[in-house]
Write a protein that binds this DNA or RNA. Structure first.
Lengths: 115, 115
DNA sequence: CCTTATTATGTCGATGATCGATATAAAGAG
DNA sequence: CTCTTTATATCGATCATCGACATAATAAGG
């Protein structure tokens, strides 16, 4: 596979999508819980507005990277949509994380100070 | 100074602005040259559309981070606007690069695979 | 000379993602 | 019985990037 590098213009989108996918990979379950998980695990460094989170989940589902399933509440529970990574999503997570490494290895020396 | 971290939503803008400011710090001069410098130094990894580059320069100037000066062409040369970092800009470059380090230190373990 | 490519800066409409507000609704707390 | 929390979703405003278009001067080639 050719070395992909995250392009500057997709940094924000890619960052958010990776945070979401990694949380799902850890078994975070549904959207709301996922947001709490990310916030807690990052000590508040990363937070999701729900107006941002849900569109991201829908996007990932549309692209076949995650699979969502509504809880069939025979138990009468709150309506929830639980997410899991697809195989495509698992691969994407790995390659996209690598692309972030490539990006940073390029970017960091470019903005070095004092030379 | 409190530890600033680059927020996910400003990654793209901040990345581009830092690339531009670092190029100016290296003495890149005017916009067009600056774009070539970044492209060459990054082996083509980072490129600027000029429809993106000039607005960035104008933004940085408006914020007082860079100072632009038109070449008064008594020599009859092409019209160029040369840029230099202000003291504010120099500080910004340092702190913003640090904020990128903070971001990455937080982000990288969050998207770790296989745990 | 004349035409074309390169240097150089700029604006503009379309696109797309985030933000904050608003909406809905069920469950738990007091 | 009311208020907060859990849970999902949409919508308009905002903002940056993208690619196209515009302008103009100089260098290169025939």
């Amino acid at each position: 596979m050719a070395d992909r590098i995250v392009e500057p213009q997709e940094l924000s989108r890619s960052c958010n999508e990776l945070l979401v996918m990694a949380a799902i990979a850890r078994g975070a379950g549904h959207g709301y819980q996922l947001a709490l998980d990310v916030e807690e695990r990052s000590d508040g460094a990363f937070r999701f507005n729900h107006g941002t989170l849900y569109p991201i989940l829908h996007r990932l589902e549309e692209r076949g990277l995650v699979a969502g399933a509504w809880s069939d509440d025979s138990s009468g529970g709150r309506r929830r949509k639980s997410y899991a990574l697809t195989r495509k999503g698992e691969k994407h997570l790995v390659t996209e994380r690598k692309a972030w490494g490539e990006f940073f290895n390029r970017f960091w020396p470019m903005v070095e100070v004092g030379r």
